[in-house]
């Protein structure tokens, strides 16, 4: 019988601290039912955002494919006023796709580890979830830096 990693954990009493058999890290983490609900809700929303970001990446890929196959868009005269911004726009799109795809994968992994870490009461697995979340945040920060650079470039080229 396969276990569902997202199934709610068995109910535990808040104050009862029971070491888990076979826990590699030895430490245990006990949470109240209300706290568990918060973490379950967090990981559910993380998985929803993962799905939506992947859908967004597919949508962007489709739009890009439609753009590159459309001859009218490649009209040199139409593109001429924006030609100087093309490298920045391409960089922004690439970073955005990396954020949506790679970031989402780590987001999903983080959700799974945070869920399992709290369900099993294993701080080390919880920390692994935070490590995956950190990768997501680093990629997101990279995207924000590119976005900021793009906005600043637009601002300075206008003035």
């Amino acid at each position: 019988m396969s276990e569902n990693p997202y199934a709610p954990p068995p109910q535990r009493h808040d104050d009862a601290v029971v070491p888990l058999a076979g826990g590699a890290d030895g430490g245990v983490l006990q949470l109240a039912d209300g706290d568990w609900t918060t973490i379950y809700s967090l990981t559910r929303w993380m998985r929803i955002v993962f799905g939506l970001q992947i859908a967004g990446a597919i949508l962007i890929a489709l739009v890009l494919a439609a753009t590159f196959t459309s001859t009218s868009i490649f009209d040199a005269a139409a593109l001429a006023p924006y030609k100087h911004m093309l490298p920045l726009v391409m960089a922004l799109v690439l970073v955005m796709v990396a954020y949506l795809v790679v970031g989402s994968i780590f987001l999903r992994r983080s959700a799974k580890q945070l869920h399992q870490g709290t369900a099993d009461g294993r701080p080390r697995l919880l920390a692994a979830g935070f490590r995956s979340l950190r990768v997501y945040l680093v990629i997101y920060a990279l995207y924000e830096v590119t976005n900021l650079a793009s906005n600043l470039y637009r601002a300075f080229t206008r003035s």
């Binding site: 104050d15 601290v17 070491p19 890290d25 030895g26 430490g27 245990v28 983490l29 701080p123 080390r124 919880l126 920390a127 935070f130």
Partner: peptide, 18 residues
């Protein structure tokens, strides 16, 4: 980290790395 059994209430037994 330690077992956490005798840790104060509210304490989470994270290692330094964590």
């Amino acid at each position: 980290p330690s077992t956490g059994i005798d840790a104060p209430k509210g304490h989470v037994p994270f290692s330094r790395e964590d």
